[in-house]
Design a protein around this nucleic acid. Structure first.
Lengths: 139, 139
DNA sequence: CTTGACCTTAAACTATACTCTAAGGTCTAT
DNA sequence: ATAGACCTTAGAGTATAGTTTAAGGTCAAG
């Protein structure tokens, strides 16, 4: 498989596949005489692995750690994979909390604003931001 | 107020205050003979406005739009502020949905992994990522 | 034998929001 | 008068994850 084929098979752009190679995530199994990258079926599995890992919210660096486990399973233990997963769950939980807090604030802001063609002189959104009504992070 | 004072009063670093100035969000009301920035009480209100806006999830560019309304209220209408707010609510809603979907997947992954010192040979997290069990975004 | 599709590289660019450095000027207290 | 705290600027660096460009080499079809 050449890079264009893997692009179609995996849904990852050739640009990105080269980028992943530079970052050490996905090395083509060999190079042709013309120096073209040649990918195997196994490389396709790895490409999809990366895609799924990203879909789960793992960063490229975390994905690299998971790939290292996948590549050499006997040298790794379940605890490693579970620990990476657990940290990500915590991290996403915090992100969701932050977003939900923002969301509540925004919904309050939106609710009391007439949203009409009236001058913004008495706009509740603007005045809320001007005053100390909004609970700020870390205060 | 000099920049260091505003830093203390607003909780925004002097670096960031200069950056906001460069981005056109917060111009000091004047410059001293020594070229030092001088901030007024009104500038402090603006600084806090920016901080609250950011705490609500607005980007600097959205914050700039809100600031433009605040600065010249009579030339703007409520609909503008409400529209910015509404878009942000939608955007954050989508982000929360995406994160919650990831979270569900991750929790499933975590649940079935023993997490022990066993070899990763049969790790359920790794094999789930290798197979087509994970619902991928946009597929 | 040439056209178009495909491949190669290194390096620059995108986006967001800072954060820091270097080199220098100013102010205040001792 | 000098140390230390504070201020100035332009420009570079940080982080993440690509995306694109420029300049060129290769391959298959007509």
């Amino acid at each position: 498989m050449k890079i264009g084929d893997l692009e179609k098979q995996s849904g990852i752009s050739a640009y990105t596949l080269r980028y992943y190679e530079k970052e050490g995530l996905l090395m083509p199994s060999k190079r042709g005489e013309n120096n073209y990258r040649h990918y195997s079926q196994d490389d396709l599995i790895t490409a999809k692995f990366i895609k799924r890992s990203k879909a789960c919210g793992f960063s490229l660096s975390e994905t690299a750690s998971l790939l290292a486990i996948k590549t050499d399973k006997s040298q790794h233990v379940c605890a490693e994979a579970k620990s990476i997963t657990h940290s990500k769950i915590q991290e996403i939980e915090e992100q969701i909390q932050r977003l939900q807090h923002m969301q509540e604030t925004l919904i309050q802001l939106e609710k009391y604003c007439c949203g009409g063609q009236e001058s913004a002189e008495f706009c509740s959104i603007i005045s809320a931001l001007e005053q100390d009504q909004i609970i700020e992070k870390g205060e």
